[in-house]
């Protein structure tokens, strides 16, 4: 069975998640959060409908708030706000899994 990373069709996003997965194995948890969050922001930029109406609630409010959170700035663009520098294994996995599921669901 192909892994979630292998199922991502977009080459750049697949590369980001492959790097995040390697960072998780290496114990670089902040890097996992950075790569996963950046990929998610890229997804929202490519799929602006995810920020419209009730979709915005689902895709912004439900984004993990475990030391980094997502906001929509005054220009209507998504951006990550960092609340701290250090992340645990379980937090890193949470960001990784949330974002990769969204990318797969979007069919990218």
């Amino acid at each position: 069975m192909p892994t979630k990373v292998e199922r991502i069709q977009d080459e750049a996003l697949r590369g980001s998640f492959a790097d995040a997965q390697a960072a998780l194995k290496a114990g670089e948890y902040k890097k996992v959060v950075e790569l996963s969050s950046a990929a998610y922001v890229e997804l929202l930029r490519r799929k602006p409908e995810m920020l419209q109406g009730q979709q915005q609630f689902m895709n912004v409010v439900f984004f993990p708030r475990l030391g980094a959170h997502l906001v929509v700035n005054n220009d209507g663009q998504p951006e990550i706000v960092w609340d701290r520098e250090k992340f645990s294994f379980s937090e890193a996995v949470t960001y990784f899994e949330f974002t990769i599921d969204k990318v797969l669901k979007a069919g990218l």
């Binding site: 475990l66 030391g67 645990s88 294994f89 937090e91």
Partner: peptide, 11 residues
């Protein structure tokens, strides 16, 4: 604090 609870759980 909500943003710390998972890290607290793991530790």
């Amino acid at each position: 604090r909500r943003e710390d609870k998972k890290q607290m759980w793991e530790e």
